[in-house]
Nucleic acid binder design. Structure first.
Lengths: 212, 212
DNA sequence: TGCTAAAATGACCACATCGGTCAATATTTG
DNA sequence: CAAATATTGACCGATGTGGTCATTTTAGCA
């Protein structure tokens, strides 16, 4: 893909990706500044364009990188022998918390891409999203044991509701995550509280969906 | 508040508010352009600043206007004698669909304000939000009959889940709403389909939460 | 060591757009 | 008709944009 970039040292690549993630998670594509990115990455403007040619390539590269990293993290975290959907969710929540701890901009960036409206990248964004996003969801729900559900339960509805609970809680914590970003202990406490709350809701809804 | 603006004709006020809503729902505060607003509203740059003094005042005025309109719409739509939370939700969904039909930018703007990060307006935004947002939620859940729930059900959890279902479905339809924005029939069909789906989920979850 | 090719720099470009102003003009009012 | 008010839009200095390229630094090899 971008051989010049891939030839650079791992640390440099990481710096650039993190700086881009940070900028693109704070601003829309149009409003994001390559000047800010190079400043934060500690590189010159020239080398960035040497690597990626233009802003758009950089943006789409970061998007693919994030989706791939996310998918890979799911692969790592998921124990496919666990066929209980609630345990699966617990696994995924802990995976997401780890990712968030490693790089808070990660999910902010993903959120931004879902509301991105710039015509300059809209079509490519949707294209990449379609090819990659569904895959990780499929992976997540592979091999689920549907017989654990009460008879007559619409499993598709049940799974969607679980996801929306997850997203709803995450969304509620978002601002707090941002505020606590620089306080390591506080940030970890928040992560735990958030995961705990998700667990609470799962405990609440599980007996409603599962047979005794 | 802004007497010069309020003295203008109702049509002019409407044009300005709609133009501002449109611009601020497409761009963050910093990225939004007053030039675009005056162009779309069909007024001169001078008169806009004559009315509001500066961009920030305009933005916050529109935000208050939207929250007030929303609250008022809830007042109109809600039958407080209906004490079944599911019927209440149905009432609110239909109210939201009406608002969305009248002005699609309405909810997009509200979504944008929830992710707004500009330091120029952050504190005021939160301040206004705190004073007004809670109120409409309180209003919505006033007089709910909790005895309809199964024994041992955590009602707070149940209500949150209903809200997240609502938001999750709405979010899923968002992009489609935008695409169909100019096709009146298609747009209405979408509104109905979205409301229908919310009803489906309510029908699904109601027997899980309520006693027979 | 010296030489060459590749990597990296950052000043610089032309340009677009920004929020905001204000002298000039149009309209309303009495 | 004059005075007061409403409205215009050209204009301002400032800022920042994505992208370029002559120049310098570094790395690899003989």
């Amino acid at each position: 893909m971008y051989p010049l970039f891939l030839k650079a040292s791992a640390e440099k690549q990481r710096n650039i990706i993190n700086a881009a993630l940070h900028e693109f998670s704070k601003h829309s594509y149009d409003a994001a500044s390559t000047n800010n990115i190079v400043k934060e990455a500690g590189i010159s403007k020239g080398i960035l364009f040497h690597y990626f040619g233009n802003k758009k390539n950089l943006y789409l590269y970061v998007y693919e990188y994030v989706l791939d990293t996310y998918t890979e993290a799911i692969f790592d975290a998921l124990n496919l022998e666990e066929r209980d959907i609630f345990k699966r969710f617990t696994q995924m929540v802990s995976m997401q918390m780890n990712l968030l701890q490693q790089n808070p901009a990660f999910f902010n960036f993903l959120n931004m891409t879902t509301i991105e409206r710039s015509v300059a990248v809209a079509t490519e964004l949707e294209q990449i999203s379609n090819t990659k996003q569904d895959y990780s969801y499929e992976k997540f729900s592979f091999g689920i044991d549907y017989s654990l559900f009460k008879e007559g339960i619409n499993v598709e509805y049940a799974l969607n509701i679980l996801r929306w609970i997850n997203e709803g809680i995450a969304h509620r914590y978002e601002q707090q995550f941002k505020d606590a970003f620089n306080d390591f202990d506080e940030f970890n406490k928040l992560l735990n509280r958030c995961a705990e709350e998700m667990e609470d809701y799962f405990r609440f809804i599980k007996p409603l969906l599962y047979t005794e």
